[in-house]
């Protein structure tokens, strides 16, 4: 059964009782909360995802959003993310609950998974090859990703590139794409058919809104692929789009710096990253205009 087959009330009912269990890529989450805004958000953003049966599903992460404490519940009205029943972060205004659950779900993978190399990077696929886009916040990574997945690229992940250490292939994790501030309007104007979740205003990151992953990406969420390109994007106002080849050695070091668990994996991390970089073409990419960026990505040839 898919999320879209349930009404918001039925989703809320599952969330408040035993938890709504959904499969996202190779991981499964059980989500519990009494906040109706999360039921609404899930009904929009996860409409195409499969619901698993609580009784027999193996659940990787048990997550919940709860009032921070009895005082917060009535006065400050703050909400808190819990993993396996433990609060992990400072409470935030309850209006941000839909964003908090997304951030928390990312945290589970980035901090607890060691069967895969986890890189802070968007990743998209075309012609059977993945393009990894590692970049710090403010580089325009998510805006670029949001545009490219409307232009024929498959969304593998907006935030976390997950690489199987056994074979070096990217495991898809097609969660909603997170947009911030001006990026929200840019994508809304450019692609009116994109489905947006609720807005979270005045968060620590500004205004945040997630967009629904394309159906095609969700359908293929168990179909991994090898890495064809590693591209470091950087939005620079007024800059002509330019893609420049960079050295593989420096790329390995920079990707390792952007990884959450490279050090924890020890030599396994090095071996898998070496394999990935070996098979990929590596670039730095500057742009200020999405049209130019799309054209340049269109011209990428699969590695030899």
């Amino acid at each position: 059964m898919k999320v879209q087959q349930l009404s918001i009330l039925e989703i809320a009912d599952k969330l408040t009782k035993n938890g709504l269990v959904i499969q996202v890529g190779v991981f499964s989450y059980s989500i519990q909360t009494k906040y109706s805004s999360i039921a609404e958000s899930i009904s929009i953003l996860y409409a195409d995802f499969e619901i698993l049966n609580n009784e027999d599903a193996f659940i990787d992460f048990h997550v919940s959003i709860e009032p921070a404490n009895i005082i917060s519940k009535f006065i400050h009205r703050k909400a808190q993310f819990l993993s396996d029943g433990f609060p992990l972060f400072n409470p935030l205004p309850f209006q941000h609950a839909p964003a908090i659950i997304e951030w928390g779900m990312n945290w589970c993978v980035s901090s607890q998974i060691n069967t895969h190399l986890i890189i802070h990077a968007a990743v998209i696929e075309k012609s059977g090859y993945a393009a990894i886009l590692p970049a710090p916040p403010g580089s325009g990574k998510s805006t670029l990703t949001a545009a490219l997945i409307q232009e024929g690229w498959r969304l593998l992940s907006d935030e976390l590139t997950i690489i199987d250490v056994e074979n070096g292939r990217v495991a898809p994790f097609p969660r909603p794409v997170s947009l911030k501030n001006q990026s929200i309007d840019i994508i809304k104007k450019r692609y009116p058919s994109v489905v947006f979740g609720p807005l979270s205003i005045d968060t620590t990151k500004g205004t945040v809104c997630h967009i629904k992953p394309p159906l095609f990406s969700v359908h293929q969420q168990l179909l991994g692929c090898p890495v064809g390109w590693v591209i470091f994007p950087k939005y620079k106002q007024g800059k002509n789009a330019e893609i420049t080849e960079i050295s593989k050695g420096q790329t390995l070091m920079d990707v390792a710096d952007n990884s959450f668990n490279y050090s924890r994996l020890g030599s396994t991390g090095f071996d898998v990253l070496r394999k990935v970089i070996d098979g990929a073409d590596c670039y730095q990419f500057h742009y200020s205009n999405l049209d130019d960026a799309i054209v340049i990505f269109e011209t990428l040839e699969p590695p030899e």
Partner: peptide, 15 residues
């Protein structure tokens, strides 16, 4: 150590 060589680059992992 485990190393990877590409053109003029080498990356070395010290176990």
């Amino acid at each position: 150590v485990t190393s990877a060589f590409w053109d003029k680059d080498c990356v070395i992992y010290h176990h």
